[in-house]
Amino acid sequence: MTEPSAARHSEAVEAVEVARTGRWPKETIVSLAAFFVLWHLASMMLPPFVAPSWARIGQSLADILARPEFIAVTVARVAAALLVSFVLGMTLAMAMYRWNAVERYLMPFVKLLMAVPVLCWILFAVLWFRNREVRIAFILVVVCAPIFVIDLLDGMHGVSKDLRDMVRALRPSARQFFAKLILPATVPAILTSWKVNLSLAIRVVTMAELVGATSGIGYALLMANETFSVAEVFAWTVVLVVILMLANIAVTRLERRLLVWRE
C-alpha cells in the first residue's frame, strides 16, 4: 500500500468508527489531548505570533462562527464544483466504458490534466478568466473531474465477467445493462472517489480563494496572514479540518446505508 492510500485508509477507518459509535476512538482522543497540552505549553513559552494561546484561538473561532458567511461561501463552492465534477466525470466514464475508442482517445488527455500541478491551474485560471467565481469553479472542476473519471471507470471495468455474462444472458438493453449492473456495482468506487475528492477540493478551494477572491475561507486566511493574526489562521485551519471531517462522516454514513449488503 502506498503512503497516500494508507493515510486515506486510516482516515476512512477513523471516520467509520466515529460514524458507527458517535464517539472518537480512544487513540484519537489521547493524541488530540497530547497535542492540546503541547500547544498550550508552547504558547506559554513562545510569543503569541508564533504560538497563540488556546484562549486567543477560541476567541478567533467564536468571531468566525459569529459571521459564518465565508464558511458558507466556501462550502457552497466546493459542493457545487464537486457536483459538476461528478456529473462530468460520470458522463465521461460512461462514454469511455461504452465505447473503446472514446477511452483510447480521451484517457491520455485525462491523465495529462491530472499531471498538471494545482498551482499551474490557478495561474491559468487567473490568466483565462476575469470572473472570480468562474476561476474558482474552473480550478476545482479541472482538478476533481479527472479523478472521478479514473475512479469510476476503474469501478466499471472491475465488474466481474461472471456477473456481466449473467446479466448479458438475460438480454437487457444497453440502458438496462448499465442501470441494473454497472451503476450499482460501481457504487463503492463512487463513494471512495467522493471521499478522496472532498479532501482534495477543500484544500484546492482554499488555494484558489487565496488568489483574487474577495470571500471564502482562503480569502479570510490571506487577510489573517496579512495582519499577522496567527490565532485567526489557526482558527480557520480548525474550521477547514472540521468541515472535512463532517463531510467524511456524512459520506461514511451514506456508505453504510448504501453498502449494507457488504456487512
Binding site: 461472471d162 456477473l163 455474462d165 449473467m166 450499482p184 453498502l259 449488503w261
Partner: peptide, 12 residues
C-alpha cells in the same frame, strides 16, 4: 440459464 456459480448480484 443456471450457471455453475449462482452469480447473484450481491447488492440485491
Amino acid at each position: 440459464i443456471v450457471f455453475q456459480q449462482d452469480r447473484l448480484l450481491p447488492w440485491r
